[in-house]
Amino acid sequence: MSLRSQDGQRIPNSPIAAAKNSGAISEGVSQRKIAKSLKLSSSTVHNIIQRFRESGTISVRKGQSQKTILDARDLRALRWHCITYRNAIVMEITPWAQEYFQKTLLVNTIHRAIRRCRLKLYRSKKKPYLNMIQKRRRFLWAKKTVLWSDESKFEVLFGKLGRNVIRTKKDKENPSCNQLSVQKPASLMVWGCMSACGMGSLHIWKGTINAERYIQVLEQHMLPSRRRLFQGRPCIFQHDNARPHTASITTSWLRRRRIRVLKWPACSPDLSPIENIWRVIKRKMRQRRPKTVEQLEACIRQEWDNIPIPKLEQLVSSVPRHLQTVIKRRGDVTQW
């Protein structure tokens, strides 16, 4: 269907041309047919025609669009306040903005203004708390120029679902969309060591660990791993400041064996590359989802043996970069 204006000119059959010329549409054609032929909504055609009848033009009058409540200067002040008080929520920023700008502002208005400031609300990352003494010790430790060891806890995962599930909004209470969990799942405590040369031994036991059991682990697994990986070359042994590690009988045993121990600053999991190994293995466990303790132990040992040497070299070679970051941040927490 071809539409013509009052002066007889043909109106092109496109939405853009309709927006420019539909105000002069000749009478006799219903707005519904015009909207259907031009693939526009009936309300859009009605508004354009009414605007033309009232003002003689289809263009929006100057100042007719919604004005922004906060100008560029206000946005700069809002951005400075948000960066200064990063932990403040929008509900706390809104009263400050109303008092500072002397304007009636809603929470949604402040939320949109924050996005206009090129800022976005993110969930804050969890990092260990460090006091000034711990930061200073980390800073001094980072200036130094290793067999890395650590323990980690693995739990049996229940159900078939992982962290995410694909569902509709109505399936919120559907049992097939729930992730099953138990109050005290069966778990294993795992000790392991690694270096840039390769993976060391892996020891798995149930329950907690004390100093006596930790010394047995060092005798049966750490010493053979050190001889196999370094072949008699001197090395420094690293472990964190857990109670079994810093017990008097453990330190005396290490002293008798003449094992050099790297002094470890407190709350520093970001400086140990073996933490990345645990993260990789736990991600594999979430994918495989072992149902029993025996399956969990078998999966852990299999994934431990499958860690490639280039991955270990990459992790160990990244330590100097982490140390430079610690020095740059004056001992504060880094990313890991």
Rank of each mutant, 00 (worst) to 15 (best):
M222T: 12
M222K: 06
L223N: 05
L223I: 15
L223W: 14
P224M: 02
S225A: 12
S225N: 01
S225V: 06
S225E: 06
R227H: 08
R227T: 09
R227I: 08
R228W: 10
R228A: 15
R228E: 15
L229E: 09
L229Q: 06
Q231G: 06
Q231I: 00
G232M: 12
G232E: 11
R233G: 05
P234V: 01
P234S: 06
C235W: 02
C235G: 02
I236R: 14
I236V: 15
F237H: 11
F237E: 05
F237Y: 15
F237K: 08
F237T: 03
Q238H: 14
Q238C: 07
H239M: 07
H239P: 04
D240V: 08
N241A: 10
N241M: 09
A242R: 14
A242P: 09
R243Q: 08
R243G: 04
R243M: 04
P244D: 13
P244R: 13
H245R: 06
H245Q: 05
H245A: 02
H245Y: 05
A247F: 02
S248G: 04
T251K: 13
S252Y: 11
W253H: 11
W253Y: 14
W253S: 09
L254W: 08
L254S: 07
L254E: 07
R255M: 11
R257G: 03
R257D: 01
R257P: 00
R257L: 01
R257I: 00
R258K: 15
I259G: 09
I259L: 15
R260P: 05
V261F: 05
L262A: 14
K263W: 03
P265S: 06
P265A: 06
P265T: 01
A266I: 08
C267H: 12
P269A: 00
P269I: 00
P269Y: 01
D270K: 03
P273Q: 12
P273M: 12
I274H: 00
I274T: 00
E275Y: 03
I277Q: 08
I277H: 08
W278V: 04
R279E: 10
V280I: 10
V280T: 04
V280K: 04
I281Q: 04
I281N: 04
I281W: 04
K282W: 11
K282C: 13
K282I: 13
K282N: 15
K282Q: 15
K284H: 10
K284G: 12
K284P: 02
R286C: 03
R286A: 03
R288L: 13
R289M: 11
R289F: 00
R289C: 12
R289V: 09
R289I: 10
P290R: 05
P290T: 07
P290E: 05
P290G: 09
K291L: 14
K291S: 15
K291F: 10
K291R: 15
T292P: 08
V293Q: 09
E294V: 13
E294L: 13
Q295E: 15
Q295I: 02
Q295V: 07
Q295M: 13
Q295P: 01
L296N: 08
L296K: 08
L296C: 06
E297F: 01
A298Y: 05
A298V: 03
